[in-house]
Every structure is written in structure tokens, then in C-alpha cells.
Nucleic acid binder design. Sequence first.
DNA 1: ATACATGCAAACACTTTGCAGCACA
DNA 2: TGTGCTGCAAAGTGTTTGCATGTAT
Lengths: 139, 139
Amino acid sequence: MIRKTIQQRLVLEAAQRLCHPSAEEIYQVIVRKHPNISRGTVYRNLHNLTASGVLGRVLIPSGAERFDTTMPPHYHAVCKRCGAVQDAAFPYQEQMQNVASTCDGFVLEKHDIIFWGICKECAAQSAAQKNHMEEESAG
Amino acid sequence: MIRKTIQQRLVLEAAQRLCHPSAEEIYQVIVRKHPNISRGTVYRNLHNLTASGVLGRVLIPSGAERFDTTMPPHYHAVCKRCGAVQDAAFPYQEQMQNVASTCDGFVLEKHDIIFWGICKECAAQSAAQKNHMEEESAG
DNA sequence: ATACATGCAAACACTTTGCAGCACA
DNA sequence: TGTGCTGCAAAGTGTTTGCATGTAT
């Protein structure tokens, strides 16, 4: 039986409030108001909450694991520059489950798609820098 | 300028011979015949070889990074039970690059698909175990 | 009352890095 | 001959775990 504790509630609330937070980000938010909470507790609660399906796990290669609350299956876009993770505006490919499930005796359970690129903010920043450099060389 | 060294050649050969090896697996293969090589050197060479495009990097969430030599873009299937990585028998989705590239100001560079499931070997093992249990309860 | 959860710290897995000496171009 | 690479060890990052204590049921 999993018990309700103050720490569990804090972890869940923080995970829901933040956007694709890592365990460390969740810990930092909580520790500000509850200085005694430990990272171990945050990790243990995140483990329980994902195991029981209350939270989702965003498996991003290279870097810390992230968590989310948007439960229907969806994909993620990751910024190569700043590491930000956002839900991808790309429809879930139902048929991919079916098509791929018969390959090579591999029993398919699910699939993830990760879109790698540069997020809006970082792209804008690059553009600004480029403009600035052009102005400099023109002046 | 990147120099050719014995260690670099050993790392490249091991990476090409093994199937989606991790850095540790590459190190273990080399260290058997060359006991003086260090993990640091293996990591540095893997970094150089992927940076120069000679090797590919398979970014598997949760667990060690893996390397491969199959250069044309393709996807991977990962066994949840044993962690084995194989190339997915699923065609590369050219159109996904185009369709997804305009979303939300995100500048798309590439995409990865990871198929999660149970590999042939592990599935066979499960089936064997199940059969065995049924025989036991029947006998 | 008694599991289960907590805080703490140590351990863990994977990877990077600083340094002194070595070796390739 | 000089820069880049090596082996070694230490440190860094993200996560798990053992233990004594605390607390929800």
C-alpha cells in the first residue's frame, strides 16, 4: 500500500505545475519552502507516482529524466541548445504501433519520437546575434 | 588536427565489430588484449569519432550511450527486459522532417524514433517459462 | 502497532577532465 | 619539435540505496 504523505503531495504538485521538470528542478522548487526535504525522497516519490501512472516519464537521451502530466500519448521536441523540452505539435501515429509490431519477432509495446532542433527562443536569439554582427560589419 | 593513434584504431575497430556497443563494452573488448588502455581514452576517441561523423551515436534514454556504424538515418528498437538495441525494420519517414519542421517556431534538425518492447530472445524465454509453469500445474 | 516513508549520506553508473609524460606529424 | 594523445585518478552528474528514525493507517 502506498501512503499519502506531505512530501508526496509536494512532489506531485510541483511536477504538475512545472513544465517537463527534471527531478532536480522539482527538488529545488520544493526545498525553497520545505528546506528539510531530501533528494532521495523526491526521487522515491517520482518513482512511485510514475509507477502508479499518476505521472508520465519523458525519456530524453543525454541528460536528466523528465516528468510530465499530459497523459495521452504524444511526442516531444528537445532543443539542442538549451535542452528545453516541449510537447511536439505532431499527431500521434497510431498506425506505427501496428505496422512496426510484427518486425523480427520483436514484441512492440510503445514508441517514442523525439524531434531535435532549436527552440523558438534560441532561434530568435541566434537571429538577433546574426543581425547584430551584420550591423557591426556594415558600420 | 586529429591524429591517428593505435588506441583510436582499436576503438574504431571494436565499435564496428560489436553491435550497438556501449563505451564500456568497447573498453572491455579492447582491454582484454591491451590491458593498458584507459576508459578515458575510449571515451575521448568515441567523442572524436562521432564528432567527425565516422561513428554514429545511438541516444537511448535511460542507460549508457551506444554507438553504431550504420550511417543512413534509421530507427532503433530497445528491449525493455535485457536492454538490447537493434536497428528497427521500419522505413525512415522522410516526410516527418518536412511536416514537423514548421511547428511553433521550432527549427527541426532531425528526429529519432525508439520502439520499446520485448526482443525475440526475451519473448521466447518468457514463452518457455510460461509453458514450463503450465506443465508443472498440469502434472 | 506496524509497515511504509523520511532524511541523511554513501554508493552507484556513466562520463568528463586536469595533469604530467609520451608519440605522432 | 611541438601539439595532440595517453594513462591515471579525481571529480562531476544523475540516481539509487542502507539505515535509523518518524509517521500514516
